[in-house]
Structures are given as structure tokens and as C-alpha cells.
Amino acid sequence: MIYQAGSKESNDCLITIKKSNETKIHIDSIVGHLFYDQILQAVKETLDDQLVDHVEVTVEDKGALDYTIRARLIVAIRRMKNDV
């Protein structure tokens, strides 16, 4: 099962999350050359805050600010948790 939140509109991102044996994070961003590290950090911190591991997270980013990435990931995680 995959769970998603967000969109591929500009300044937004689409987050896809699914269960996995180990935690993996994929980032595909139109501004990856400038903000890869910050996007990765936002994802890691949010996973920690939400006490989530063993997931595979994919970020398809269209120039979202950090708080948008965090908000989308939180919703994707909640959608996953609510489905259990």
C-alpha cells in the first residue's frame, strides 16, 4: 500500500510513503542542486518527530518551501497510520 499527500503544482511537492524493511528517502526536486540537504533534513526531522521508521519516502518536489514539505509528509504519515 502507498500513501500520498501534496501535489505536483509549482511550489508544492508530492510525498509518497510506504512500509519498508529499512528507511529509505528518495528526493527528486527541481531545486535539488540548491536545496537537497535541506529537503533531506526536513524529511528526516519530520519522520523523527512523528516517531516513524521502516518506511520508504519519495519526495517529488516542485520548489516547495520546507514547511510545505513537512506538512505534506505529516499528512502522508497520518493517512498511513489511520489506515492500519
Binding site: 531545486v31 542542486h33 540548491l34 536545496f35 537537497y36 540537504d37 535541506q38 518551501l65 520546507d66
Partner: peptide, 9 residues
């Protein structure tokens, strides 16, 4: 303060 500081190219 809005975008964060971009990496060097």
C-alpha cells in the same frame, strides 16, 4: 529567511 540558504553551485 523564506527559502533557506542555497548550496554553492
Amino acid at each position: 529567511s523564506i527559502t533557506g540558504i542555497p548550496a554553492k553551485i
